[in-house]
Design a protein around this nucleic acid. Structure first.
Lengths: 352, 352
DNA sequence: CTGAAAGCGCTTACAG
DNA sequence: CTGAAAGCGCTTACAG
């Protein structure tokens, strides 16, 4: 591997000058710059990233940390989650296109929040994106270290310590889940539904809470009576949703429509109903959340709430990029909320 | 951020000794080791990864390079591909559990193969996994640089230059797609099918070629006559599969069963048939490839060929891990092939 | 078992 | 506009 000193020797300049050319500094004569550039090209010289970083440059790397609850033996932990994969995909694309490397890590238990600190302390990453944040995430993050360029997705801004926010060290990106579900309830009401149920997500997450909250508010504001039997517990996974639906069927306490905290649970619930010859949307209508591919391919196609994952992940990268470029902290404006679209398909029926 | 020199001062030893403790070298007295460890713990000292690498240690990072054809604007490039996401997920999990970091990059055109070189040259990665390799990939990789610890997934070993293989620098991991499709054809024949069609994958990839090859061989070996009309062109994506199926329907040249180079195309084709009131499996039987979640959730559930992605990606990481630990090259044994399982579900019908 | 010194390959003030 | 020197925070022979 050729190094800057050798390039310098070849061209007949000092290492400093080679460095200036590499870093595109202005104080180099055009003639010298050209010669150096040619040598670099000819000898395929590539500056050692680690030496550069040690000497004061950035690592040009963004860390992506996924908080995952499932056991490490599970073969489909990231994969299983459309939210994660869409997000990760977009982050990689956008970060790559801006010249950043992406370092991905999973966090599967509280001790592993340590990994975030570690990545920052070891200077492996310039900024980080924390995804799938649990409510209690923040207390596992040390004040001093992490507080550089951090974007948190799906976390209640209230939970971010004030000094983090004030110093503009942490940004928060959320989708407007409350409004989304509120709108979904209204849509069902417009279609004649009055008995509207809800399948809940994993309690610990903001989105689970907010989605349910939107449901409750909409029910109340529309003067519908709250019925406990219409609420099914859930954790975003299919298994639990299926069991809860099974119970509801046995009890015979089905509403005419369900809103589900995600598509996967909707799909599982619909399957379960199908096994009992209860049909969607003829007997029960369904609205999911996340706009997964499967929801689009199934029959009937699943009506769902679609967050703009791409815009959100793009924003995540851009925030870090801006921080790094300007080398300054965020302004007051460090909470971003994105609209969620109601995608009307075949799983909701108009009733009388 | 505290550094080794300060730890040394606190404990009253030299930096060398601190370094020995960090690296778990044997030549340190138990007493000293203990004291150093305590100071490290107390002051939350973390060695700077970049300094360590520069001084001769490994970067402890594995690069994952995805070759993707779709345009950068596409919002579901990685995500869209179950093969990629499953693979990536498993790699991250396994690599993380062994203490490696994972750097992910996408390669969307020939020029971007450069990225692999760059990551290695800049010493950002110790080893690499190249996924979704096209037939002509290898010529874009420079001999000298890349030739360290590289695992290639889904590439014809014949195409790897002999000196790469001989020096044990590159390993190849494939699934037994030929045998898989061969078996699938037999399964269809057992179920009474004689008119068996095939929807092809993207020509440039090994798996597309091998899967089709397995089909051709099985047709021939079973004495069935090859019918050109039964073969639909494809590129692993739904759009093309749908169009081709539409054409076949218009021509009226449908076989009684199709094997598809992946599940996505099967799903698209089935949808297309459905729009023409042609039912699966009543009128046409289907076998997919990849065992996607969608295939499992649709009605009827898709019969499919399921590669062991998890085992394959695990092996990828383990190979690199072994290389790095032993610091030696691979033996003659550097081609690995994994069985593919036929998962029998509802999309194949027994006919007379 | 331990320490002083050189070195990893860059960047960055400092001088000129 | 350019170069010599110091420094980034580690590791690794070398001596003892």
């Amino acid at each position: 591997m050729i190094k800057s000193e050798e390039i310098a020797k070849i061209v007949g300049v000092s290492r400093s000058t080679v460095s200036r050319v590499i870093n595109n500094y202005p104080n180099v004569s055009e003639d010298t710059r050209k010669k150096v550039l040619e040598a670099i090209e000819e000898y395929k010289y590539r500056p050692n990233a680690y030496a550069r970083t040690l000497a004061g440059k950035r690592s040009e790397t963004i860390g992506v940390f996924f908080v995952i609850d499932e056991a490490p033996e599970s073969q489909r932990r990231l994969y299983h989650n459309d939210f994660f994969t869409t997000y990760l995909d977009a982050i990689i694309d956008i970060a790559n296109s801006k010249g950043y490397y992406v370092l991905v890590q999973t966090i599967t238990c509280n001790e592993e929040y340590e990994k975030i600190d570690k990545a920052f302390c070891e200077q492996r990453v310039d900024g980080g994106i924390l995804i799938g944040t649990r409510k209690d995430s923040l207390k596992y993050i040390r004040d001093e270290s992490i507080c550089q360029h951090m974007v948190m997705v799906d976390i209640d801004p209230e939970l971010v310590p004030t000094h983090f926010m004030e110093q503009g060290l942490v940004s928060v990106i959320n989708s407007k889940d409350y409004q989304a579900v509120y709108q979904a309830v209204n849509y069902l009401i417009e279609n004649g539904h009055e008995k509207i149920g809800f399948i809940k997500g994993l309690e610990k997450t903001l989105s689970a809470f907010t989605r349910y909250d939107g449901y409750l508010a909409a029910i109340r504001d529309n003067g519908l009576s709250f019925c406990k039997d219409y609420i099914l517990e859930g954790d975003f996974n299919q298994e639990k949703a299926r069991k809860e639906m099974e119970k509801a069927i046995q009890k015979g306490t089905l509403p005419t429509a369900y809103i589900c905290a995600n598509d996967y649970m909707a799909i599982a619930a619909i399957e379960c109903l199908g096994e009992h010859k209860i049909r969607v949307p003829e007997d029960v209508s369904f609205i999911g959340f996340d706009n997964t591919q499967t929801g689009e391919l199934m029959q009937p196609k699943l009506t769902t709430l679609s967050p703009d994952f791409f815009a959100m992940s793009k924003k995540s990268v851009e925030i870090i990029h801006q921080h790094l470029i300007d080398n300054k902290k965020m302004n007051a404006e460090n909470i971003f909320e994105y609209d969620v679209e109601l995608i009307k398909r075949g799983s909701v029926r108009k009733i009388n």
